[in-house]
């Protein structure tokens, strides 16, 4: 039970790579969008807010389909990206990461936005009067203070990216060794006669992975809160 088969190792490492990529590339955007939503008022804010949350409420298969249309080899963005940068999303792990990133994005934004809104704006004002530019204030004051929420949001997004299935399989299909993250690998296993045992092992693996991600998130956030505010 404790040694992983090559197939499981492959699924696990692919899952981690996909989820990690999704989070690393998604994070700066999530921080930017969360900042806009928390701090600024502008026309169309409600629309942006709704749009960001869309992946949480529409069927994942719809997201996958839209990704296929936009980022497929003949999609508007996909074609341009391929021509300009040689980046291709269709039917490979990068596409899986894109799908996972988009599905995890609203969770990241929510967590980060809450932590930005929890910062006392008067403290940021104080920093301005001490000679700090808005960028400086963000970097030295806001960012450290939102770190607990940022980490929680990131881990939640990470966990969601690990769990991603519907949009992934629609966008990049289930190709063993290429797009077979843990959920996809479980699906593939279940398609084969007698594959239930293999599926069960990977189900357990998935659950353990998700729980560790959430536990790590809580631990990190607590440690940081303690260093910032003392005993919480």
């Amino acid at each position: 039970m404790f040694t992983l088969t090559p197939l499981e190792q492959e699924a696990l490492s692919l899952s981690l790579r996909v989820a990690l990529t999704a989070v690393v590339f998604g994070l700066p955007f999530a921080v930017g969008v969360a900042w806009l939503l928390a701090k600024k008022s502008f026309p169309g804010k409600i629309i942006l807010d709704g749009f960001i949350h869309l992946p949480m409420i529409i069927p994942p298969v719809v997201v996958g389909y839209l990704l296929l249309v936009a980022f497929g080899r003949n999609g508007a963005i996909g074609k341009w990206l391929y021509d300009v940068a040689g980046i291709e999303f269709a039917f490979n792990w990068k596409g899986a990461a894109l799908a996972a990133g988009i599905m995890g994005f609203p969770l990241m934004v929510r967590g980060i936005r809450l932590s930005i809104e929890a910062i006392d704006p008067r403290i940021e004002t104080a920093a301005r009067t001490l000679g700090a530019s808005p960028f400086r204030v963000f970097w030295s004051i806001s960012l450290p203070l939102m770190l607990p929420g940022l980490i929680a949001g990131t881990f939640l997004g990470f966990a969601r990216a690990l769990a991603e299935f519907g949009a992934t399989i629609t966008f990049v299909a289930a190709i063993p060794g290429k797009t077979s993250t843990l959920p996809v690998a479980i699906y593939i296993a279940l398609q084969k006669p007698g594959g239930e045992d293999a599926a069960l092992r990977m189900v357990v693996l998935s659950v353990l992975l998700a729980i560790s991600a959430l536990a790590a998130s809580e631990l990190f956030a607590r440690t940081i809160r303690r260093t910032i505010y003392g005993a919480s």
Binding site: T125, A127, L145
Partner: peptide
């Protein structure tokens, strides 16, 4: 009025 020190 409130000191507004940086808590971190």
């Amino acid at each position: 009025q409130d000191a507004r020190l940086f808590p971190h």
